[in-house]
Lab assay of single mutants.
Amino acid sequence: MASQGTKRSYEQMETDGERQNATEIRASVGKMIDGIGRFYIQMCTELKLSDYEGRLIQNSLTIERMVLSAFDERRNKYLEEHPSAGKDPKKTGGPIYKRVDRKWMRELVLYDKEEIRRIWRQANNGDDATAGLTHMMIWHSNLNDTTYQRTRALVRTGMDPRMCSLMQGSTLPRRSGAAGAAVKGVGTMVMELIRMIKRGINDRNFWRGENGRKTRSAYERMCNILKGKFQTAAQRAMMDQVRESRNPGNAEIEDLIFLARSALILRGSVAHKSCLPACVYGPAVASGYDFEKEGYSLVGIDPFKLLQNSQVYSLIRPNENPAHKSQLVWMACNSAAFEDLRVLSFIRGTKVSPRGKLSTRGVQIASNENMDAMESSTLELRSRYWAIRTRSGGNTNQQRASAGQISVQPAFSVQRNLPFDKPTIMAAFTGNTEGRTSDMRAEIIRMMEGAKPEEMSFQGRGVFELSDERAANPIVPSFDMSNEGSYFFGDNAEEYDN
């Protein structure tokens, strides 16, 4: 993207840094990872977990959730003011799984939030270390993106479920800051804005008074975040219109849905970061690795190297396929839920299948599930090659597409044709070009129609051997075009429920 120079890199967003050079960025990201790792080690000690239990991804998720809940100030305040039966607002906890007599047992633990905050700050040299908290939120978000298709949420806001490739980060909490905003897809931002506008339509006082002023500035800020994701002048001009509207209503909703559809071809720039579970960072720190000293990046080879040398386990339900569970977590670790499966298959070195073909449910185990038949197995999170994460949407291309997802959002900077089903997408653009945004709409449609099938995206960008740390010898991959490109292809993934 041309304006790259004016933006802070995501590592800076990730670490609240002012302008830093590459070495400083690597050190501050490393410091953040160190903090998460030290916190995780301490929690495993508190909970008396064995090494194996500490490497269980379900335990990692519970521990991450506990610290996120302990620092969720708004919710904590709300819980104190609106006490609900049987919930102690000062405590947080969740299921911890232990191996007892050759069987997995679930144990519900409860801790004072104050105590968890103390352990977290102690692991982070006394700081609140917001960057580390956001990092864990993005890992949870990436896992949700890989596990669930947001059909219901899309339909509720009037969008087409086939636009799911635009929904990265749709389950990120509001408090995820600049680093969170960077990884949100165009569809996620559109959905947040539509929800806001709908509230304004239904509630006369939404934009009024002292609160209304705050609401208005939040609305304009979200519009600017979305505008910054678009790469064409016409899309940005249309966002200006939406932002400046005196009284946002149905016309703005129409414009936003139009823009979301246009992003299936004229893709937005959305950041991709490899955020790993805390149970990967903990053992690495415990083994003596100093992330701050060595430096770390979320968008280069580092996460690949770390996963190459990590042992992570997962509980497996009786009829689940461990290899499929591994694929789910591998995609989440690489922030690749909406990437082209052919690119992923090449990088991973084994075939990556669409969601609907995987015999696996989510990673988390519900409290009512029976533990008797639970097994555990090693997650295979290694890769054959590594590639640089991208934040450009890439230019655009036609490809055989599917009944489910009709476009992709690249996660890796790797040369390819970008699949999208042009006739299906263009069919949504018939007729409606009147109104105050008509010239911009016409211009956007013209650009979409001009998108050429034979153009290559990320020209000359390749993948790298894991021994090639400096990215000196790019390998331009070859793809098996007979395979499906979309992950949520004609899909039956479970729906995400809060």
Rank of each mutant, 00 (worst) to 15 (best):
D255A: 03
L110W: 10
A233F: 13
P419K: 03
A179M: 10
V190G: 15
D160M: 10
I57T: 13
G431T: 00
G490I: 04
C275R: 13
F479E: 10
C333K: 11
R221S: 12
A271H: 09
T171G: 13
S170T: 12
N202G: 05
G393A: 02
R156D: 13
N432Y: 04
R436Y: 10
G86H: 08
T378K: 04
K422H: 02
L307F: 15
L47C: 02
Q327D: 12
P318I: 06
L193A: 05
S376C: 15
S367G: 00
K113C: 10
L226M: 11
K422W: 07
L61H: 00
M447T: 04
S310H: 09
P423Y: 03
A428D: 14
R204M: 12
E81S: 03
D51I: 00
T424K: 04
A181C: 05
M1H: 10
C223H: 12
R361E: 10
G356Q: 10
I406F: 08
L110F: 08
E18P: 01
G485S: 06
T215R: 01
S467A: 09
G431I: 07
Q308E: 02
D160K: 10
T188A: 08
Y289A: 07
S467K: 00
W104E: 10
S310Y: 01
I201G: 03
R174L: 06
F412W: 12
H135P: 05
L47T: 15
E64Y: 02
S28T: 12
A251W: 10
V242E: 14
G356T: 08
S367V: 03
Q398C: 05
T433W: 13
E375Y: 10
I388A: 07
V155R: 01
D290K: 10
N498Y: 06
N432R: 00
G86E: 04
F420Q: 04
A336Q: 02
A123N: 04
F420W: 07
E81C: 09
S413I: 07
Y385Q: 13
R216P: 06
E73K: 08
I201Q: 03
N124Y: 03
C279I: 08
G93L: 03
R55H: 00
I201W: 01
C164D: 08
Y40N: 12
V155N: 15
L381E: 10
G393Q: 08
L298R: 09
L226S: 06
Q12E: 02
A153Y: 09
I316A: 15
E443K: 04
A181Q: 00
I63H: 03
R246H: 01
T378V: 05
G37V: 04
Y281S: 09
T6M: 11
A153G: 02
R436E: 06
V343S: 07
R156Q: 13
C223L: 04
K91Q: 14
L49A: 02
K113G: 08
Y97M: 11
V312L: 03
S359W: 09
I475R: 01
A181D: 04
Y313V: 05
Y296E: 12
Q241I: 06
E11W: 07
E434L: 00
R26M: 09
A403C: 00
A123I: 05
F489D: 10
A286R: 01
F464W: 09
V186N: 12
R246L: 05
T433Q: 01
E252M: 11
S245I: 01
N21W: 09
L466R: 03
Q122G: 00
A471V: 14
R213G: 01
K422P: 09
T171D: 10
I116E: 12
A70E: 02
L466N: 00
E455A: 03
N498G: 09
H140L: 07
R118E: 10
S170W: 13
M1Q: 10
L466S: 15
D439Y: 03
F489R: 10
R152T: 01
H272T: 08
A181W: 13
K98M: 08
G460Y: 13
P248L: 03
D302G: 13
S478F: 05
N124M: 03
G288M: 10
A27E: 04
A442E: 08
L61D: 12
A403K: 00
A332K: 06
A442I: 00
L226I: 06
G394A: 07
A129L: 00
L264H: 15
V312N: 10
N417A: 01
N417R: 05
R355W: 14
L143W: 09
E465L: 10
R75D: 11
P318F: 04
M105P: 07
S402N: 12
I445H: 10
L166K: 07
R195S: 06
E443M: 10
Q20K: 04
I316T: 14
R175T: 05
K351P: 08
E80V: 03
F429G: 06
L266D: 10
S353Y: 05
Q398W: 01
V408F: 09
F412M: 15
Q415A: 14
Y40L: 00
M105C: 01
Y111H: 15
L108W: 10
Q168Y: 10
R74W: 10
A471F: 10
I265E: 12
G431K: 01
L315N: 04
G282M: 12
Q311Y: 04
Y281C: 14
I253C: 12
A323Q: 12
R195Q: 05
F489K: 10
E115S: 15
D290W: 10
I57H: 05
M105H: 00
K293T: 09
S335M: 13
M191I: 03
Y148M: 06
K87N: 05
P303W: 09
R391F: 08
M238C: 06
A336K: 07
A286T: 15
N397C: 12
M159W: 12
